[in-house]
Design a protein around this nucleic acid. Structure first.
Lengths: 220, 220
DNA sequence: ATTAAAAACTAGGCTAAACTAAATAATGGT
DNA sequence: ACCATTATTTAGTTTAGCCTAGTTTTTAAT
């Protein structure tokens, strides 16, 4: 099964929307996600239906198939591996990688991805903390909790952010709350939901509820 | 000036043909080089002419412009840097890199290429020994000589191969005559043109004229 | 239950890049 | 210098992916 670049992008968007969005994925949602017009989406849905990566009945919505899920996860795997490469090896900043990875993810070469994975030492998470599917599409997603929902004295490791805007990522970098940092909740202010945490057993940090709710932690 | 992937491929082919082929580049040559039909080439030549990367008068032939040369060299630069990456970092064999590099060369991101270049330590030659243009398109091509044309006792460094077929590259790898190897001519057999060389000051190697004439050496 | 608004789809058109078939220009051999 | 061969270009289609405009279906409000 061969997908074009455009088809891969649609399928990836559909997969992401299916994951988060509760019910079915709408044509308008997809159009918004990939910056295109609903009419173009309708067209593409028909084609993706024919290729059996989604199950599609017009006006009734769609459902991604197992095949579709597998292909989408392959693209996501490639995207995230390239992000790791760009950040770890080429020293890109968190907020500079997305566009480039968006192009690199469409390179077709199973060998390349296999070698890249090995070269990067089989990373399990990308620089934003999102899990990297294995070559069969399996995602080992550990239970994560928003930092503001943790209890006092609980510890863990920062593994992801919800808001990955450039501004937010820069802020985190600056205060030292990077992905992978080991943290412990020292105090919580009931009044406004802000928290005080200990980072890497040396630095204490205050953050508002707004910030803390955007940081995902793997509890330990 | 923005070129599509197809335009980049045409321009690259035209550049290569202009370099080697003495006189003007023919429509048929281009068609053969990029595996397409002459009619498609005519079409594209008109477009490339409009974009002023070539000077084109139908039936009269074409000439690549300075602008075209610069753009072609940028693509070639990217291609060769990726080849270095694939061989040096991902341990691809010489004969496995071309297809993948052919895809990677079209990724658009000046920053990516800048960082990749630095990461690879500003290589001057690709794994086949071809020079890598700098970001302004300058090629530092040192004078090279075919191994069979060197004199006895002359030394040098293997910098390129003329025949880069998989079979030949594998053969060279096997006998240890890699790109970069320092060699010295120990003996030449007048009768059949075969040569005996010393590789890296330890290993002696016999090779036929056929083989030696396909190896380019930078004399020292 | 009706109907206005929103969502989704179809039709028709555009561009890039390819193709085949047909037309035209250049070339070479006598 | 002629004419047959070869090279090249034009014309007309095709496919993918997008668009706008217009139509149909669903939905939600009264």
């Amino acid at each position: 099964m061969e997908l074009t670049t455009a088809e891969e992008n649609y399928l990836k968007a559909i997969y992401h929307l299916s994951e988060e969005g509760k019910k079915s994925v709408s044509t308008n949602d997809i159009a918004a996600a990939i910056q295109t017009k609903p009419a173009s989406v309708s067209d593409m849905l028909r084609k993706l239906g024919e290729k059996e990566v989604i199950q599609y009945r017009k006006y009734y919505g769609l459902q991604i198939t197992e095949l579709g899920k597998r292909l989408a996860l392959q693209t996501i795997r490639k995207h995230r591996l390239w992000e790791v490469f760009l950040v770890d090896k080429l020293h890109f900043a968190w907020d500079e990688v997305h566009e480039v990875a968006e192009q690199l993810e469409h390179i077709q070469s199973p060998l390349l991805i296999e070698r890249l994975d090995a070269y990067l030492n089989y990373p399990k998470f990308d620089p934003h903390g999102d899990p990297i599917p294995d070559e069969y599409g399996d995602v080992r997603s550990r239970p994560r909790i928003a930092l503001n929902e943790m209890n006092i004295d609980q510890g863990g490791q920062i593994v992801a952010v919800k808001d990955s805007s450039a501004a937010f990522l820069r802020y985190l970098d600056k205060v030292g709350a990077y992905i992978g940092a080991r943290i412990k909740v020292l105090d919580k202010v009931e009044f406004d939901g802000s928290v005080e945490i200990l980072v890497d057993q040396k630095k204490t940090l205050f953050m508002s509820k707004d910030v803390a709710s955007n940081i995902l932690v793997l509890q330990s």
